[in-house]
Computed example of a mutant assay.
Amino acid sequence: MRRPSGRCTFGLGRAEILSAQVNGLALLVLGAVIAFEAIRRIIDPGVIDGRLVLAIGLGGAVANGAAALALSKANRQSLNVEGAFLHNLYDLYSSLAAAAAGAIILTTGFGEADGLAALTVVLLMFRGGWGLVRDSGLVLLEGSPQGLDAERVGTAMASHPGVVEVHDVHPWEVTSGFPALAAHVVVGREEDCHTRRLELARLVHDRFEIDHTTLQVDHERSRDLLQLG
């Protein structure tokens, strides 16, 4: 990952999110193209050489299976790696579906099997592509990371000794595996703001695994202050 610079203060961590978005959109577009061709083949299957389809499917399954196995051992918490894995996985599914269709055509002469097998793979591609677009879009829109509820984080912080109120709680994600938190905390007038900030930062790290926190900590306003206006 590129180191932080003047304009890119978090480096290029979001580049992998953009890549995941492109991967997801590519799966959706390819799925639509394959679906169109599959429907055309179901309507007019033509003459299909079952042995050739079976051989190509088995050969592709071996190659794509090896690639998918290698990527499955990588850090799939990264949306970019997950996108590459899904591409290989659906290539594997396509090869297996082609091999199955070839075997059916070879044994029964049912030419429509090729198109039906392709449509099955398309459904899986749509599911995976939409998941990538959704998850990467959530990061780009700075939504709460999966499994991290803003209300639960705020409640935990507000329950800490010396804390009077917590609001404007915004958990978000810089990139895959890099959660962050911003919040406004009000503490008692006799409390040490710096000490409470360090304690709260440690709390969200230990309980919610958030390392990057931006906490604005202020003293509670005196009720005796004259409200003007």
Rank of each mutant, 00 (worst) to 15 (best):
A15Q: 10
L228T: 15
L71I: 15
G59V: 10
F36Q: 08
E220V: 01
L25Y: 09
D206K: 02
H184F: 03
S19C: 09
H184Y: 04
A68S: 12
V139K: 06
H219G: 02
G13R: 15
D224W: 12
G31V: 07
L79D: 05
H205P: 02
V185E: 10
G229H: 12
H205V: 00
G143C: 05
L54W: 08
M1G: 06
G188D: 03
I105E: 03
K73G: 02
G6A: 05
D114C: 03
G60D: 13
F36M: 01
A55D: 03
V153D: 03
L86C: 08
V217E: 06
L71P: 03
L141D: 11
G102V: 10
H160I: 04
F126E: 00
Q146M: 02
A98R: 06
G65K: 08
F178W: 08
G6Y: 00
L79R: 05
I42D: 02
A183V: 13
F110N: 04
E151D: 12
L123R: 12
F126S: 05
E199M: 12
F85H: 13
A103W: 04
D168H: 15
E37I: 14
T213R: 11
V22C: 06
H184C: 00
L119H: 14
S94K: 11
G129S: 12
P161W: 05
T120N: 12
A117F: 14
A74L: 11
E37F: 08
E199I: 13
V204Q: 01
A67F: 13
N75Q: 12
A70D: 15
G147H: 02
G162D: 05
L123K: 03
Y93A: 07
D135F: 07
T108Y: 05
T120E: 04
G65M: 04
I34A: 08
T155R: 15
A97S: 15
F85K: 04
V53A: 15
E151K: 09
C8N: 13
G109E: 07
A150N: 05
I56A: 14
V53H: 08
G188N: 08
E151V: 13
L89G: 07
P161Q: 10
L106R: 15
S72G: 00
R221T: 11
A103V: 04
D218E: 15
T214L: 02
R14M: 09
Y93Q: 13
H205R: 10
G137H: 10
G137L: 09
